[in-house]
Amino acid sequence: MPSSKPAKATTGRTDWAALRAMSEDEIERIAAEDEDNPATDEAHWAEATVGLPPGKTSIHASFDRDVVDFFKRGGRGYQTRMNAVLRRYMEAQQAKKA
């Protein structure tokens, strides 16, 4: 059932004005120094493939509060991370049966 509350606008943490003021070289340097940004080059992408994720099904599910809180602490995309954990579990179980 749709909520009667209006949707809240989300604001990101990106300083777009500062980003637009940077040169391409400066952006590349910052990205190269970022330890969370894996170093990639042409060889890294040589065997990359493009794939579409499987279709999503919306369900109602109940989870333990501490489990949901754990994933929410990781920020936006917590449901996607929860799905990824469930997918790995599913794949591991399927591999055992194969």
Score class of each variant (00 low, 15 high):
A21E: 08
A31G: 09
E91H: 07
E26C: 00
A7R: 14
G74H: 09
R87W: 02
Y89S: 00
D36N: 11
T40P: 01
K8G: 02
A92R: 07
A46Q: 12
A18Q: 14
P54G: 13
Q79I: 07
R76S: 15
I59F: 11
W16E: 13
E26T: 15
G55A: 13
K97N: 04
T40C: 13
A46C: 03
H60K: 04
E33V: 03
D41W: 01
S3V: 05
A98I: 02
V50S: 12
K8W: 02
K8Y: 09
P53H: 08
Q93C: 00
G12E: 08
R29W: 02
M82A: 13
R81H: 14
R76F: 11
P38G: 10
R73T: 13
A98F: 02
A84M: 03
H44G: 10
S23D: 02
I27R: 09
Q93N: 00
M90K: 09
N83Q: 14
W16H: 09
S62V: 10
E42Y: 04
D34M: 04
G51H: 10
Q79R: 09
R13Q: 08
T14V: 12
P53G: 04
A31M: 14
Q94H: 06
W45Q: 03
Q79S: 10
A61F: 11
A9M: 06
E28S: 05
S23P: 00
A46K: 13
A32H: 15
A95P: 02
S62Y: 05
I30N: 07
A32N: 15
F63Q: 03
S58A: 09
G51Y: 06
R13P: 08
K5R: 12
K96D: 01
A92I: 04
K72M: 09
R13L: 07
T11C: 01
S3F: 05
P54N: 12
H60P: 00
G55H: 11
P2D: 14
S62I: 05
P6M: 07
W45P: 02
A9D: 03
A92C: 00
T11I: 12
D69R: 15
M22A: 12
E26M: 14
M82I: 15
R13S: 11
M1K: 10
P2W: 10
R87T: 07
A61H: 03
E33I: 00
V67T: 11
P38V: 12
R73L: 14
R20Y: 13
A95F: 09
Q93P: 00
E33A: 13
D69C: 14
R29N: 06
S3D: 11
R65C: 07
D66N: 13
Q93M: 01
K5C: 08
M90P: 00
E42C: 02
A18T: 13
D34P: 04
D36I: 03
E33F: 05
R20K: 14
R81V: 06
F63V: 04
E91R: 09
H44Y: 15
S62F: 04
T11V: 15
E91D: 04
L86G: 12
A95H: 10
R88A: 10
V67F: 06
A9C: 01
W45D: 05
T49K: 11
A48V: 01
V50D: 06
R73A: 14
F63P: 01
